[in-house]
Amino acid sequence: MPKNALPTMLSFTAPNLREQIEALPEGTALIGISTHGDAIAVDLNAECPHVLVCTATGGGSTTVLRSLTAQFLHQGAHALVLDPKRISHLWAKGLPTVTHRGNVAGIHEALVGLGDELERRQDLTDTELAAAPRLIVSVDSAYSTMRGLTRYWETFRDKDDPLVSPAVTALEAALWTGRAARVHVILDGTPAPSVLGAAPHDLFGTVVLARVSATTWQRLAPLAGPAPKRSKHRGRGHVIQHGEAHETQAIWMTNADVVTWLTDPDDPQS
């Protein structure tokens, strides 16, 4: 199939794009448009409980996290946004259904609370769980976040406490059991091997890669063939689903786009 000429930036304000996004069913979010003109989306209700995003600098990982999280929030989900740089997701501050944490102590506390929420949801009946809002756990800079949590726990851990940080344990539990609790992780980067394990594709039904090395590609998308040539286009990468790689132009949503859309969805300029 021949490739289409995609714009170098696919803005949320592009004609008909917002309408296309809002027409998606609950639990489905648009990642972008492939170079063959197909809509590339993630469906949390189907085969894909979690999303892994891994890019080199300028590859658009923060934008993908922001776009996907915002779309699920628009559908009624709640979100826990972990922002260790403290400035990557300022859009999340002040939104009523979003918990935003930046410093390591706040991230630790939030993830421990996530573990409690997972246990609570596991005790709900099917009817009660269906009525509970979907919970999106958006983790930026996962590798440095995991290292920071480990150092934090080593500093404050008592001798009778577990060796592994309960925050890291809670995130790992969300990855393995989140589907049954309507909890979904959108992860940026590669966290510690103890979280990802030996086969990341077993945990993440959708993997978004951009400007990564051949070694990283092989680790995160071993079934998708050799690493493709890196694109110079901002926001252009590959979405791997079902072992196939789709070259895709990701949606660009600014902080202002997200805040206006979520706080005033009837505003035609949002």
Rank of each mutant, 00 (worst) to 15 (best):
A192I: 05
H184F: 13
A199V: 14
P200D: 08
R179D: 12
S194I: 07
S194W: 03
P191W: 02
T177K: 07
T177V: 07
L209G: 13
V195C: 01
A180Y: 08
A192S: 11
A180H: 10
D202K: 12
F204L: 06
V207Q: 04
V183F: 02
G197K: 06
L175M: 15
L196K: 02
H184R: 12
A173M: 11
A180R: 14
G197R: 04
G205V: 09
I186V: 11
T206Q: 08
L203K: 08
G189K: 05
R182D: 00
A181E: 01
G189P: 10
R182H: 05
A198G: 11
A173C: 12
D188I: 10
D202V: 10
T206K: 07
A173D: 13
V207H: 02
V183C: 02
G205E: 09
F204G: 02
R179E: 12
A180L: 12
V195I: 02
S194C: 05
L175Y: 08
I186K: 03
W176D: 15
V195E: 00
I186A: 01
H184L: 11
V185M: 01
W176P: 10
P200T: 09
A210G: 08
V185E: 01
F204C: 04
P191Y: 02
A199T: 14
I186S: 01
A173N: 12
A198K: 11
A210L: 06
T206A: 13
D202P: 01
V195R: 00
R182Y: 03
G205R: 09
V195K: 00
G205Y: 06
H201I: 14
A181Q: 03
T206R: 07
L196E: 07
D188Y: 11
A192G: 13
R182S: 02
H184P: 13
T190Q: 14
T177G: 02
H184S: 13
L209K: 13
R182Q: 03
D202I: 08
A174I: 09
H184D: 14
L187V: 07
V207F: 04
T190V: 14
D188S: 10
D202F: 11
I186M: 07
S194K: 04
A198Q: 08
R182I: 01
V195M: 00
L187M: 14
T206M: 13
R182M: 03
G205N: 10
V208P: 01
A199P: 08
L203C: 04
G205F: 09
W176F: 15
G197Y: 05
L187D: 04
A181Y: 00
G178S: 13
G205Q: 09
P193Y: 07
A198H: 11
L196Q: 08
A173Q: 11
L196I: 13
A173Y: 06
